[in-house]
């Protein structure tokens, strides 16, 4: 990182109360306050949010796509976790 390279931050925005924060994109900033300002200026020009989170991109721990099969495939065949797996006669109510 050169002296003028500002680190990258990921931006998460809550569109309105009742919703969770969603990833919007990234911005560069020298410090956290600036990161919030830049996120506000860039991502909420059209009333897109009521709350902003910023986090340094390097702080995010991500799963490796190479592990996807072992991480996510095992869940695919456990269909008994889903309610539609169970056959209940139509005339049984409230279940």
């Amino acid at each position: 990182m050169s002296k003028t390279d500002w680190p990258l931050y990921e931006v998460f925005i809550r569109a309105r109360s009742g919703l969770s924060h969603r990833h919007f994109g990234s911005i560069h900033a020298a410090d956290e306050t600036m990161a919030l300002d830049h996120a506000r200026d860039l991502y909420t020009r059209r009333n897109e949010g009521v709350s902003i989170w910023v986090v340094k991109s390097t702080e995010i721990v991500a799963s490796d796509p190479a592990d996807s099969d072992s991480l996510f495939e095992p869940a695919a065949d456990k269909i008994y976790r889903h309610p539609t797996f169970y056959k209940i006669p139509d005339d049984v109510e409230n279940i």
Binding site: K3, T4, D5, W6, A30, D31, M34
Partner: peptide, 12 residues
């Protein structure tokens, strides 16, 4: 703008 970006990094 270089001195500005440098200043912000130095402050951080």
């Amino acid at each position: 703008g270089r001195w500005v970006r440098e200043a912000a990094s130095a402050y951080a």
